[in-house]
């Protein structure tokens, strides 16, 4: 059961935060990890070495045999971007609910009030969603939303353009207008480590154009946003993400979430999903 979940890459630590070997969980199983940059290791509970990748500020592993490399974020190599390890937020919810919330803009005025959204600017205009079969990713484009304070670097309210990308079942990337450089996209990711089907460690990471803000302020801004999301994620019923239509009622604003649920079902990814309606 849930074997397909094994064959993906998952974040298990921030590379800069590994001082001593430690234990964590992945897909309900204990793993241990440690080492130093260039020499990190991850082991399963029987002491077998698991594959490791050091990328985007995080240490990645897989308990199975991933049939592809870790997804590419080319912007990570751009000159002039600041790479921000945000740290982790532990959330009592399905890893899939955490990703779905990250893909949603309609909640901004109510959950991130006066920061990422504000009444009466609640309308979500139609946007495009496509599954890119060649890379097996979901892309939502032409997403627009009015934001009172779009980023730490934003001085006032602006219409922010967004693009969303589901790069792996528990990893999503968003691209949004960079307030200091309106022609460029800031990159914010959500890397989710599924501890169990109903508990996850969320590792946000950013590649921003922002030369002014203190690193600590960038981190605390993003942490605040995720703490607001957590108050939602820990109070959804059921805790697992329902993949079958019928239990929940999407609208046009939820096109990305609808595509995400369909895609999970299509690729047979059921870890953290409620497949049969209760």
């Amino acid at each position: 059961m849930n074997n397909s979940a094994d064959n993906h890459w998952y974040p298990v630590a921030m590379c800069s935060g590994i001082d001593d070997p430690r234990e964590t969980q992945l897909l309900g199983r204990k793993i241990s990890l440690g080492g130093t940059s260039g020499n990190f290791w991850v082991r399963d509970s029987e002491g077998r070495d698991l594959p490791v990748i050091e990328k985007y500020g995080h240490l990645w592993t897989s308990p199975g045999k991933p049939n592809r490399d870790l997804f590419d974020i080319p912007e990570a190599d751009d000159v002039g971007r600041r790479l921000v390890d945000v740290g982790s937020v532990r959330v009592k919810c399905s890893p899939l609910r955490a990703v779905e919330n990250f893909l949603d803009i309609a909640h901004f005025p109510f959950v991130h009030t006066d920061i990422l959204g504000a009444e009466p600017h609640t309308e979500v205009e139609r946007y495009d969603v496509k599954i890119h079969e060649d890379v097996d990713e979901i892309w939502a484009t032409k997403v627009k939303f009015f934001q009172p304070q779009a980023a730490k670097s934003a001085g006032g309210g602006i219409i922010t353009d967004y693009k969303y990308r589901v790069a792996a079942p528990t990893c999503a990337v968003l691209y949004k207008t960079s307030p200091p450089r309106p022609g460029e996209w800031d990159v914010i990711t959500l890397f989710v480590q599924p501890l169990t089907e109903e508990l996850c460690e969320v590792w946000p990471w950013m590649a921003l154009y922002d030369d002014d803000a203190e690193m600590a302020d960038l981190v605390s801004f993003q942490q605040m946003i995720f703490m607001q999301d957590r108050s939602i994620l820990e109070n959804q019923i059921p805790r697992k993400l329902p993949l079958d239509p019928g239990l929940e009622a999407p609208t046009q604003a939820d096109l990305t979430s609808v595509a995400y649920r369909r895609w999970l079902k299509k690729i047979g990814y059921s870890y953290g999903a409620q497949v049969v309606a209760a």
Binding site: N235, Q236, I237, E248, A249
Partner: peptide
């Protein structure tokens, strides 16, 4: 205690 949209309390 459940919103029909996304199950929020």
């Amino acid at each position: 205690d459940r919103c029909p949209h996304r199950g929020m309390r």
